[in-house]
């Protein structure tokens, strides 16, 4: 299995397409960082417009590395599934269309092992992608913008997380994002197993995410009640929960706390169930599949 994983990783990381995702992310984050470096204060002012009338706010402190990273993640993580699909959607179908799948499947390794190795290799890719995002959006942002308290804007108010209470939240948020992205990878894998070309699964994965996100966000009661609880997209943004700090009755934040931990755990569990179900389905289908390509 370790051998297989090494081989799959080798294949993924020798493919030029893989690095496309890293380049896109770097370009995207640098653009945001540059924008915030130039106009960050104005942007913060715009965001906190209504508050500016009652409060004196030190905007230069608000635009700090943690805040920049938070902003980046909010914009970026929604789009990372596309980059995940780009690689995960290709792992089986790409080989089918290239013709190497028949060589692979005629080797003395079980099909289950092949699929699991491919999924694990995808996991390493996703991990590397998130690590890359973390390094650029967090480490570089902190280096450029400095460290300070993180102000998180929600529709029902602002909350401030002290600088020394932030880093661990990013750690867990990235961990959560990893699980969320692995659901996307599992969808892509399943579609990839069923397809003979790599464009199909990639487009289909993105399509599924878009449709599910739309249904998740539509405020139509029947969808809200009967469909939404079962959609994975409902749980994908759970990483934000780590930045919702707990507070006392009179609004004083409690350091090191999370406002709604059960919600996050539930989201995580739901995503895990998705992963297990989707990967099992992929294994099942791949085991039964006649390789005709």
């Amino acid at each position: 299995m370790w051998n297989l994983l090494q081989i799959e990783l080798f294949k993924i990381f020798k493919k030029p397409r893989t690095y496309l995702a890293f380049a896109i992310i770097a370009a995207f984050i640098f653009l945001i960082q540059l924008g915030l470096l130039v106009n960050g204060k104005d942007w913060m002012k715009f965001m906190l417009g209504s508050l500016d009338e009652t409060m004196n706010i030190d905007y230069s402190k608000l635009v700090n590395g943690y805040a920049v990273c938070f902003f980046v993640l909010n914009l970026l993580l929604v789009h990372v599934p596309i980059l995940v699909a780009l690689v995960a959607g290709d792992v089986v179908s790409g080989e089918a269309s290239m013709g190497t799948l028949r060589l692979l499947a005629a080797k003395p390794v079980s099909r289950t092992q092949i699929i699991l190795a491919k999924y694990l290799a995808t996991a390493v890719y996703v991990f590397a992608l998130l690590l890359w995002i973390a390094v650029i959006s967090l480490v570089i942002s902190i280096a450029v913008f400095g460290e300070n308290d993180l102000v998180v804007a929600k529709t029902n108010g602002l909350q401030l997380i002290e600088a020394n209470d932030v880093l661990w939240r990013y750690f867990f948020a990235f961990g959560f994002a990893f699980i969320a992205m692995m659901v996307v990878a599992a969808i892509s894998l399943l579609l990839s197993v069923m397809s003979e070309n790599s464009i199909g699964p990639i487009v289909a994965t993105v399509g599924i995410i878009i449709v599910c996100t739309l249904i998740s966000e539509m405020e139509i009661p029947i969808y809200q009640k009967y469909i939404k609880p079962y959609l994975f997209t409902t749980y994908m943004l759970g990483w934000k929960g780590f930045f919702y700090i707990g507070s006392t009755e009179d609004g004083e934040t409690i350091k090191g706390s999370i406002q709604y931990l059960p919600g996050i755990i539930k989201s995580m569990a739901a995503l895990m169930v998705y992963i297990v179900a989707l990967v099992s389905a992929a294994v099942f289908i791949f085991r039964k599949k006649d390789i005709l390509s």
Binding site: M47, E53, T54, A153, G263, K266
Partner: peptide, 19 residues
């Protein structure tokens, strides 16, 4: 006295937390 708290649409960082 505080004024109404309102955020420009689309810039908040909400998510469905189950609460």
């Amino acid at each position: 006295n505080t004024k109404d708290y309102k955020m420009p649409k689309g810039v908040t960082f909400d998510f469905e937390d189950g609460s």
